[in-house]
Computed example of a mutant assay.
Amino acid sequence: MSGAPGPMMRAVGVDLGSVRIGVAIAPADAAVAVPYEVLERSGERARDHEALAGMVADVGAEVVVIGLPTSLDGGEGPAAVGVRAEAGEIAAALDVPVVLHDERYTTVSAERILSEQGLRGPARRKVIDKVAAAVILQSWLDARD
């Protein structure tokens, strides 16, 4: 059957923020990403990466997809350079592959989703990061088809 998607794998999506890390998951038997958790930054990246590694192990992920903040023209600025560096540190702390995926428009998409659900203010801030992670992961899943 031509055009069939590749084998499904359990994946974790990550939206690296300066204050919070959004985490989403996609079970191996589903092609849909779902928001999972928001990890508040501790001020120590090694501790944050250890917490993320625990989540990856807990869900039995086979791959971690980290959003790469590129500019609208596809270029990479300081934010992308920082994410690439941190993704390397995360990869060193994990036993599964780490891939970077273009995250252009993910925050806009996540904001639209939450707006449609009527979430405002503090309620929105509590979930926006994991919703953004789900948008990143869903985009990666869709690109694999």
Rank of each mutant, 00 (worst) to 15 (best):
G22R: 08
I21A: 01
P97N: 11
L39Q: 12
D142C: 05
V65W: 03
R124D: 00
V59W: 07
L114H: 12
G74W: 13
V38Q: 06
V38K: 06
G75F: 04
Y105R: 14
I21S: 01
A51M: 11
L141A: 07
E50L: 13
A92C: 11
D142M: 09
V32K: 00
G17Y: 06
A46C: 01
R84A: 06
L137S: 00
G118D: 08
M1T: 12
L72F: 08
S2A: 12
V64F: 03
V23R: 03
V56S: 00
R144T: 09
L100T: 03
G43H: 06
A28W: 01
M8R: 14
R125P: 02
D95K: 13
V63C: 07
S109W: 02
E116H: 12
V83N: 01
M55W: 00
G75E: 10
E37W: 10
E116L: 15
V127I: 14
M9N: 02
G22Y: 03
E103N: 09
H49E: 13
T106C: 10
D142N: 13
P7V: 11
L137H: 08
G67D: 04
H101Y: 13
A133G: 07
G88P: 12
G82I: 00
L119T: 09
G74F: 14
G82W: 04
R125S: 15
V59L: 03
A51R: 15
P35H: 05
G17M: 08
S109E: 15
D95N: 10
D58V: 05
D145M: 11
V34F: 08
M1G: 14
W140D: 01
S2W: 12
E37S: 11
E40G: 09
D102M: 08
S71I: 07
I136R: 04
D142R: 14
A28Y: 03
R104Y: 09
G54R: 10
T70R: 15
G74I: 08
L72I: 13
P69A: 04
G54W: 01
S2R: 13
K126S: 10
V83P: 03
A110C: 11
I25Q: 09
V14E: 02
G121E: 10
D129Y: 03
S109P: 00
Q138R: 07
R125I: 03
E62S: 08
G67M: 06
I66K: 00
